[in-house]
Amino acid sequence: MLSPVRTSLLENLVDRLAGLPSIGRKSAQRLAYHVLAAPVEEVESLSRALIEARRGVRPCTVCGNHAEGDRCAVCLNPRRDPAQVCVVERPSDVSAFEKLGVYRGLYHVLGGTLSPLDGIGPADLNLASLFVRCENGVDEVILALGTHADGEATSTYIVQRLRDKTARITRLARGLPAGSDLEFIDDLTMKRALDGRINLG
């Protein structure tokens, strides 16, 4: 019989891994066996990387993107145009736009979309600081949220709140497949959507 202690250590590891997104029970088991078979130094450097990244990466105080200090690399870049702000759901959307290399403005990362079902209202998103940012020096707010119901509702909410502000509001052109998340869209489609954005007011 296996000793109960040993089993629970392995089970604990599998449980932790299976708790990660898009990792099922089977993959978690495979990863756990891989970890158990790997040299201890390798596992130590993996766990160090996890902790260092988690401790060292924080939301940018300006835009909410991942940052290693107060501000993220985009906000720190003096050549970016602070008059243009592109509103996205997640930091991964920022990477997708940056990969295109055509956008010269700044971002604002909401940290998700509205979803009353999940208890996520306006106060749970990084919205207040967006509205403050738009008080001064922003000419254009580009809404680049998903085209699913929650992305649309979040866009509608922002348009309502910014209606009286001076900034021009645009959203990505409807080249995007309906119901989609930005992270699954190919570069060309995304560039077309950015080039052909639509005025909302």
């Binding site: 509205l114 009353p116 209202g121 306006p122 106060a123 119901a149 649309e152 509702a153 979040t154 509608t156 909410y157 309502q160 709140r161």
Partner: peptide
């Protein structure tokens, strides 16, 4: 959103989803 207890927030939420 109809059951949301956020006071003034609720109207904004309702309006946002009603558009869609």
């Amino acid at each position: 959103a109809l059951r949301w207890s956020g006071g003034a927030e609720t109207e904004g939420l309702l309006e946002a989803y009603e558009a869609t």
